[in-house]
Design a protein around this nucleic acid. Structure first.
Length: 325
DNA sequence: CATCAGGGCCCTG
DNA sequence: CAGGGCCCTGAT
């Protein structure tokens, strides 16, 4: 990839998320497989952002603390193609994707003494469920993780970025930006299959076509109640019971979106909640519903991410075995 | 070497 | 509602 887009200009804004707020828990999700459109170091987060047909580089810096959160948002852009970014709209988009104005005070109050959740809630108090991706991009990410192992998901994703994305340089970072749905919609399915996507090529094309058609109004979807939203999403080719939950939770921040536990999660939650190797999914579901009610998926998210954070510092053999890199 | 499941989903009967 | 097929990879 010879040509790198260099974002030569920048503009700053300050955002105050709702307290409590965990910068690192919100902007880095160690359980997620990495994609080359974002990067993280303690206290700083970078990502590329395709928004309103422009390519941006975003850098977020932590200027606050859990009880007094504050971020600096730096928007990098190309002055040749854009006179001045719409900072208000960009900040609103980031606030939505990262759920920055969510009020988690009652979640924390209710569960900071819960024997299962205590450690995760204490350590990650104010962590949001969040995603760097647009709805379209998130669907690509979930399509690519279906029915395979992490290493292959990473490979497929990198193949896609190399073929359809582009390189962006800003704030000393070199990252890729996503492509537009139209870029995939117009290519031949066999060209996609050459990227070792297998049967997922068909799914990626069909989903891209939906976005190109304009039939999906994301802002309108945000206002739907969870059940209606779920019905709409399940009609989309390639979205089944596992993927729809990931979308409801991570993109639309529905904190209770868990009705189905896929095998991999079953193994992990069996350990984290019951300290057993394998517990029946119906037992897990009943337990988390009884304990955490409307917050049940957020509660699982705290447990899940906390386990993956711990894995960075200590050996967790059972978790290592479940992550087949 | 061959076989097989892997962080699902679609389609058919 | 059950079960086969799907792409490719690395583990066995």
């Amino acid at each position: 990839m010879a040509n790198t887009l260099i974002l030569d200009s920048e503009i700053d804004a300050v955002v105050v998320p709702a307290a409590p707020f965990s910068f690192d828990g919100t902007f880095h999700k160690p359980s997620h497989y990495p994609t080359p459109d974002h990067a993280y170091e303690t206290g700083t987060y970078w990502q590329t952002l395709l928004f309103d047909n422009h390519i941006y580089g975003v850098r977020l810096t932590n200027l606050g603390e859990v009880n007094h959160p504050k971020l600096r948002v730096t928007i990098h852009y190309d002055s040749q193609s854009l006179q001045r970014p719409d900072v208000v709209a960009l900040v609103a988009e980031l606030e939505y994707r990262f759920d920055l104005q969510a009020d988690l005070t009652s979640f924390v109050r209710r569960f900071r003494s819960d024997p299962v959740l205590r450690r995760a809630v204490t350590r990650w108090r104010g962590m949001r469920v969040s995603t760097a991706y647009s709805l379209y991009e998130f669907m690509v990410v979930t399509t690519v993780l279906q029915n395979t192992v992490v290493s292959r998901s990473v490979q497929m994703m990198n193949n896609l970025f190399n073929a359809f994305g582009g390189k962006v340089s800003f704030a000393t970072k070199d990252l890729f930006h996503f492509w537009q749905p139209a870029d995939i919609a117009r290519v031949d399915e066999n060209a996609l299959r050459a990227l070792k996507l297998g049967y997922r090529a068909k799914t990626l094309k069909k989903q891209a076509e939906i976005f190109v058609s304009g039939d999906l109004d994301v802002d309108q979807l945000k206002t739907q109640d969870t059940e209606s939203l779920k019905k709409i999403l399940l009609k989309i080719y390639g979205i089944g019971p596992a993927t729809v939950q990931y979308i409801l939770f991570e993109v639309f921040h529905r904190y209770d979106a868990i009705q189905h536990i896929p095998p991999w999660e079953q193994k992990i939650f069996s350990r984290l909640i019951f300290e057993q190797e394998l517990v029946d999914t119906s037992v897990i579901l009943k337990e988390v519903t009884d304990r955490y009610g409307e917050w049940k998926m957020l509660a699982l998210h705290y447990l899940f991410e906390n386990a993956f954070w711990m894995r960075k510092h200590e050996k967790i053999p059972w978790l290592d075995d479940l992550i087949r890199l």
